[in-house]
């Protein structure tokens, strides 16, 4: 049983979402569930899976640099009743093995949890091939797959626990680096598909996903001094989308901002736009994410800033919008 205390939360935050998912959550899940398998495509060391590999050698498989085969093998294992976690970089797992995911998880519903690590732009100067800004859109369009992106390291633990208890295929997007900012400093109630209001404000709402939830919280804090109190929502699950919550937000808010480390096309912003289009609301939507092009290279913070996704830039945009 994982103990959630302020101290463990701080430790996980230092490990980041990836380290927490693989070195903390998965060994605990395997301890409780016998039929759990973990597959990687030559990223065991980098993902922090060595502890899992040593503790549960029979439940671990490295398939080499072969993402398509990894998802196929995962599907075969899931078909036989295993709960299978398959992982490598988000950009490779969501794209190289896309049709394997679509047919095996989407069409046939095999219980595979696809964990895309280093999603968004945390790989920084590694280059655009390592930036994953399309994965939410790609995964979201496939029927029958849950799509989740935790806000911080604690939420990563809670997501991993939650998906391990279902037979539904899932894509989990892990963003950020080591020292992932903490959104939650103590335990809280997490449910797949149920967005969380972190700050109840009025008139303006920021719906954020992934590590940018922490930026949204910062924005709200700094705007309070200027008489603006935006509602902040952690929309960790993009599918199934919490449409009820979005509908509620339209009642008290004239502008909704979506904030994501993803293309403005097809991700959180796209999902919220689709939801709003069916509501006949006058609430305005402004999507904040990567424009429809590949980003300039730099370190993580630099790229976020260049694309106006850091707290300071988001705050300026909101102030401009309410003028």
């Amino acid at each position: 049983m994982i103990e959630i205390t302020p101290r463990t939360i701080r430790t996980w935050s230092m490990l980041g979402q990836r380290g927490t998912a693989f070195a903390i959550a998965l060994p605990e899940i395997a301890a409780e569930q016998k039929e759990v398998m973990v597959l990687t495509a030559d990223l065991s060391l980098l993902s922090g899976l060595e502890k899992f590999k040593q503790t549960y050698p029979e439940q671990f498989l490295d398939v080499g640099i072969a993402e398509q085969n990894m998802i196929g093998i995962a599907a075969g294992l899931a078909k036989e009743g295993n709960c299978v976690f398959a992982t490598t970089y988000a950009t490779f797992i969501s794209m190289r093995s896309y049709e394997q995911i679509r047919n095996n998880l989407g069409v046939m519903g095999f219980n595979v949890k696809v964990i895309g690590s280093a999603a968004g732009v945390s790989m920084g100067t590694s280059g655009n091939c390592h930036h994953s800004i399309e994965d939410l859109a790609l995964m979201r369009v496939i029927p029958n797959i849950q799509v989740i992106s935790p806000a911080d390291a604690l939420e990563t633990v809670k997501v991993m626990q939650a998906i391990s208890k279902t037979n539904i295929p899932a894509y989990v997007r892990l963003t950020g680096n080591l020292n992932c900012p903490m959104v939650y400093k103590e335990d809280y109630d997490f449910q797949i598909g149920k967005g969380i209001v972190l700050n109840q404000g009025r008139d303006i709402a920021i719906i954020a996903i992934g590590t940018l939830v922490a930026e949204a919280v910062k924005v709200a804090e700094s705007l309070k001094g200027q008489g603006i109190n935006p509602t902040v929502v952690n929309m960790h699950t993009i599918k199934p989308l919490d449409e009820k919550l979005i509908k509620e937000l339209t009642r008290e808010h004239s502008i909704i901002y979506t904030l994501e480390e993803h293309s403005v096309i097809g991700g959180l912003g796209g999902a919220v736009a689709e939801c709003l289009s069916g509501l006949g609301t006058s609430t305005k939507l402004i999507r904040m994410g990567f424009p429809d092009k590949y980003s300039v290279l730099g370190d993580y913070e630099y790229i976020l800033k260049q694309n106006k996704l850091d707290a300071g830039s988001v705050k300026e945009a909101i102030l401009e919008g309410v003028k």
């Binding site: 196929g72 093998i73 294992l77 078909k79 049709e99 394997q100």
Partner: peptide, 16 residues
Amino acid sequence: SLGMALSVGVGMALDA
């Protein structure tokens, strides 16, 4: 979709 099932077969055989 061609080229899909052999990997799944590997998974099924591994499970056995």
